[in-house]
Design a protein around this nucleic acid. Sequence first.
DNA 1: ATGAAAGCGCTAACAA
DNA 2: TTGTTAGCGCTTTCAT
Lengths: 346, 346
Amino acid sequence: MPRQPNPARRVTIIDVARHAGVSTTAVSKVLRNAYGASPQMQTKVRSAIEELGYRPSAAARGLRGQTYTIGVMLPEIRNPFFADVLDGVTEHLDGTDYQFFMAQCCNDEAGEARVMESMIDRSMDGVILIAPISARKRLQAVARTVPTVVIGRHGHSPDYDTVTDDDFAGAGLVVAHLAELGHRHIAHIEHLEKDPVRLVEMPNAQRADGYRHAMNAHGLADGIDVVSTTYTQEGGYLGARRLLAGPRRPTAIFAGADIVAMGVLDALTEDGLTTPHDISLAGYDNTTFAAFGPISLTSVDQAGHQMGVNAARLLLDRITDRTRPTAQVKLSPSLVTRRSTAAPPA
Amino acid sequence: MPRQPNPARRVTIIDVARHAGVSTTAVSKVLRNAYGASPQMQTKVRSAIEELGYRPSAAARGLRGQTYTIGVMLPEIRNPFFADVLDGVTEHLDGTDYQFFMAQCCNDEAGEARVMESMIDRSMDGVILIAPISARKRLQAVARTVPTVVIGRHGHSPDYDTVTDDDFAGAGLVVAHLAELGHRHIAHIEHLEKDPVRLVEMPNAQRADGYRHAMNAHGLADGIDVVSTTYTQEGGYLGARRLLAGPRRPTAIFAGADIVAMGVLDALTEDGLTTPHDISLAGYDNTTFAAFGPISLTSVDQAGHQMGVNAARLLLDRITDRTRPTAQVKLSPSLVTRRSTAAPPA
DNA sequence: ATGAAAGCGCTAACAA
DNA sequence: TTGTTAGCGCTTTCAT
């Protein structure tokens, strides 16, 4: 017993054309707001669309023109910073004909490749890649196939636009803040990076560089102490464990990301330590988590929302004109001080 | 100066057929693992695909057959519980030909409608709707158009499969735990629901019912105290404010979701109160947030991962056979006790 | 300004 | 088992 006696054939452009007494070409033009449709034609077609409840098939459109679909690749969904970026994208795309879909890639090159390919296979009109770790070559290849905006990756490409935060400066803000409070031994937990190209392009590397530079600039070269793990909660936990077990415990920790700071807090709690009494802690991203009362984490705000808005804008521009020169938007971070940082214990 | 001198036409099934010296039908069959292709044909075609780097166009496929695309709608990305569900979906879909894409809908019916429509427009092969708030009628309509699995919504439908947690029982676990600790005045912060149909189907309503039932069962009818807000951090904050300002402060609060518990903690912190010393607090979802050391929130584990796995499995089954009777998977919750709950202050 | 008709890259009848 | 061919629902020349 099939549950659908009459699988209700979808309304097509032909139905609309017939109902409005015009050609399919005319309907198509109205759909795309293309040139060559008189006002009266517009109203005729639009009311037919309305009456029939017609919705264009993205698959069919994609075979010739656009799909009005944008793909957003993100490394992981748990880092709340990405939610801010997505809000920005949503905001800018709202009201346009474009709909965006997200796909998570598991923080490895193979996963990213699979996701990017699948977006291309689905004839998406453009893609926004958030903090990709793939080789630059791969990104270029993708960008030559489909309009692309890369978020959170430094460096100039002739093929894709970029939106980044000035991570170097952001790290400097943290060090300056802690130095001013009187800290001299400020440790940094970074995301380990080996690949030489990525070493320059990845935000984590820039933050680590900015940290070192600022420490030196403040005459705290002796207080430089870097632990390399990963930008995950687990990475933060392990990094903190190593720092706490070391011979010379830092009076402050600069975690490369809020999610890393979470892991640090896990470790601190385990040892019965509290911020800022026993140790000061700062993060990066200013996620909602950092603002959360019981945590109250000093963090660098890199305006994820603005990054999302800019990325969406650049992408639509590029979809409109694929030959325009690429743009590099670099946003300035600001420090949000909260209760997790204070002067070091006397 | 166009950046792409030769826009490199995509390799099509015709190219593959020509290169392998076979018909396009043969290639199509191999692609779909369809019946009627000899082993030697398979290898011939596969190597041609390999050599040419051919990838099928989902748009073109969608016009006749499947797109191998699954859509997952989720109400908001910030609630970490959904990440668990997505992990489950990812796990089950991994290794299949299906790729899934997520779309966020803004917790309102119009937003959900837009997202569901857009998935249908894109000829997706199936959709997983996570905690939708749309009227049942709408869900049915969607399910009659495209294979659908609904997560987190009670009630039986002839058109879609469901995966839920036994929310009624879950609330009971919390009350039992708190009662055993000696609490008699246990407040509950619920998500306000007015619509009569949803009142029965929504998890939040079931939790509130389970709470009331359990309170009565434990002889704590006098201690019943329900505050209606929303399942958001803000809702938790406001709910807690109301409870703390009331004439009779509860010794324990059962927040309907971990995200609500976060808001409660915000309010408690503001008043200089701590858990479990001043007040006990329990949540629902057992998100990574609850497990987070400094929070250590007692919470109900509804096995989000398992929900995701089950949903993906049911969906693939339904895509294979749309006429099979619908299934209702109901998972049993378990309580994870942590440091946020203890005996009430003497 | 409008419409007729040729595809876009596949899949599915059907024929061989 | 294999190949031929007619669409799927649009967009896009190109006439008119």
